[in-house]
Amino acid sequence: MAIQSGEGHAANWQHFLGGSREAFAALYASFAPLLYNYGCKECADRRLVEDCIQDVFEYLLAHRAQLSPVTNVKAYLLKAYRRALLRKISNMRKNIPVALTDEARFEIVISPESHLIGQQSSLHRREKVAAALNALPPRMKEALFLRFYEDLSFEDIAAIMEIDQKSVYKMIYKAFDKLRRQLADFPLWALLYCLLLKP
């Protein structure tokens, strides 16, 4: 699939508001997999994750006339999706317990590729960093994910997570401060080694 720029998505959004099925199809193709990935990090119940994707896109179809132009479609959809998902989870929790990812939410992993390319020393350090990050509260990890994986601004993250911007900044800063302390005991040569290794 072609990588689409933010402006491309905003243009598709605009065309969709004008009634283009083609643009709607493009939005679905770009964002259904993204929401799925995000949803799986939030909740372990795949059925729920998928139902909410359908709900969000159905909402768009049903309210096309009332929707307004947005500049960051990704942030808009993530916000709508997160709301739908959390609402559904809390509704279900009243009745039956839902399999939530809870502690494993927004888990940081060491990919198999880094096992292959990583030198033993660098891999060990990364594992240590990942362990330190995974010990953080899930909300903090979610903010990190949105910032560094989905490439969203502090402002967008604040809107998605429904907290103020200052808290987002604080969460991310705190996460990295913890990391810095974790890394402080590494010798200088190891850090330089890592610099040379990473492209």
């Binding site: 949803g39 940081i108 990364r126 990942a130 994910f145 990391l179 810095r180």
Partner: peptide
């Protein structure tokens, strides 16, 4: 060294990709 440390932290942020 500071830059290298910061880079290590950033590149440690890897997430499992859930394929739809």
């Amino acid at each position: 060294a500071v830059i290298a440390a910061a880079r290590t932290m950033l590149s440690s942020l890897e997430y499992e990709k859930h394929q739809m």
